[in-house]
């Protein structure tokens, strides 16, 4: 591309405040010092890059991966009909939606609670891999992946919100009762951890490793 002769702001001694977006001149010899002055416009802490971005993202992502297992194995919802408990995991809940003919809703739930977390975790793993191994190509695509992950993250809370409505509405103990299962906590953990991981990932790390011709 024609931008290879253009340098990043950091290489020219400028940093962008990640709170207000203004440009600040990096003091001489400050490249390796831990503490920068606060931003002159918004008083927020300036960072050359998000602090410990790679390590934080990797740690949060690993925790999310681990939590993803109990989130899918344990029941997320326990429906008791006339005293007979019925355990639903995320997948079996979707299957029972399909069986009762609600395919559009089943698709929606499938996208929000299966596809989105998987896309997020795989995408972040690819991004971390690309940073680690200094990939030189497809930067634009990788940045787009980051944007998609950041946009899509919050929508997996759908299942949690649906359960919070169902448990409070269907609670007549004689006929039918809906309880949230232990997987709800694990799944909520996955959503929060992947959102935190996305927030701590700095996409500029991808471009910093680009060798300028």
């Amino acid at each position: 591309m024609s931008f290879s002769n253009k340098k990043s702001a950091l290489k020219q001694g400028l940093i962008r405040c990640h709170h207000c977006g203004c440009i600040v001149q990096l003091p001489v010899n400050a490249l390796h010092s831990k503490h920068l002055e606060p931003c002159p416009r918004c008083d927020g802490q300036l960072h050359i890059r998000l602090p410990n971005s790679f390590q934080r993202t990797a740690a949060l992502l690993c925790s999310a991966f681990i939590l993803y297992i109990p989130a899918n194995v344990f029941p997320i919802m326990i429906v008791t009909k006339f005293g007979v408990p019925e355990h639903h995991t995320i997948i079996s809940g979707i299957i029972s939606l399909i069986n009762s003919g609600m395919v559009p809703i089943a698709t929606l739930v499938f996208i929000a609670s299966v596809l989105v977390p998987l896309i997020k975790m795989l995408g972040l793993a690819i991004l971390l891999w690309a940073v680690r191994h200094r990939w030189q190509r497809n930067m634009r695509v990788l940045t787009l992946v980051y944007r998609i992950i950041a946009f899509v993250g919050r929508w997996s809370m759908l299942d949690i919100f649906m359960i919070s409505i169902l448990v409070s509405i269907v609670s007549s103990e004689a006929l039918e009762q809906v309880l949230a299962g232990p997987a709800a906590t694990a799944f909520a953990g996955v959503v929060v951890l992947t959102m935190l991981a996305t927030n701590s990932f700095d996409p500029r790390l991808l471009w910093d490793r680009l060798r300028v011709q």
């Binding site: 253009k6 990043s8 400028l14 962008r16 440009i23 940045t143």
Partner: peptide, 16 residues
């Protein structure tokens, strides 16, 4: 000195 207002940096790729 530098007129920092004359510049922007991309938040995602840091291009000046």
């Amino acid at each position: 000195t530098l007129n920092t207002l004359a510049y922007e940096a991309c938040p995602q790729c840091d291009l000046l």
